[in-house]
């Protein structure tokens, strides 16, 4: 159990570093701005306590905000995404009971399941974020297209990270 918490904390730090130092430099065609840090929320175990889920999302968003001068925007988007996570899991898999401690990943749940689950939550996160960032609704179409393209790109990056992580845990078993 303690080992798991330490693993999540290390993941937390590595993801922030990756996002801030590398992924934040991506600027593809003026439209696509990927974010990989939400995979931290995606990877929390199914049985995670509700307040732990929300508070860790809050901490994650705040850390990213601190590094990108966005003040509260990532915090709001990530917390919203964490709030939606239980409903999305129920929606995607139609059940609520999972083995305690299992994490959502392609090895446990299959590639298709993970892809749908991640894509929906990432799109929720990106759309929420880009709407707060613009703070107006007059260029609705522009924001929607930007969220879609960025969301798809982020999900692709996140699927790669899933594969890297779950390969390692399978080897550990």
């Amino acid at each position: 159990m303690d080992l798991n918490i330490i693993r999540h904390i290390i993941r937390f730090i590595i993801l922030i570093a990756l996002q801030v130092v590398i992924v934040n430099q991506f600027y593809l065609g003026g439209f696509i701005t990927p974010f990989i840090y939400p995979i931290f929320i995606l990877l929390l175990p199914f049985s995670v306590n509700g307040s732990v889920l929300l508070l860790s999302a809050f901490a994650m968003g705040l850390s990213i905000d601190m590094f990108s001068d966005t003040m509260g925007m990532h915090t709001a988007a990530t917390t919203f995404m964490a709030f939606m996570r239980p409903s999305i899991i129920r929606f995607v898999s139609g059940k609520t009971d999972f083995d305690a401690g299992t994490e959502p990943n392609p090895v446990n749940n299959g590639v298709v399941w993970t892809l749908i689950y991640s894509l929906i939550l990432i799109l929720i996160h990106h759309t929420f974020l880009f709407f707060i960032e613009a703070f107006r609704t007059d260029d609705f179409v522009h924001i929607i297209i930007r969220s879609l393209l960025s969301g798809i790109f982020s999900t692709a990056l996140i699927m790669i990270i899933y594969l890297l992580i779950s390969k390692k845990s399978r080897a550990a078993k």
């Binding site: 601190m66 990108s68 509260g72 925007m73 917390t79 919203f80």
Partner: peptide, 30 residues
Amino acid sequence: FFFLFVALQVIAFAMIFQNNFYQRSAFVNS
């Protein structure tokens, strides 16, 4: 779960508004 979510959102939006309106971010900026 819902009330904690609402509380955290209120905090986040308070930060957004404070930053936008007063150009002030004494602690959390780069």
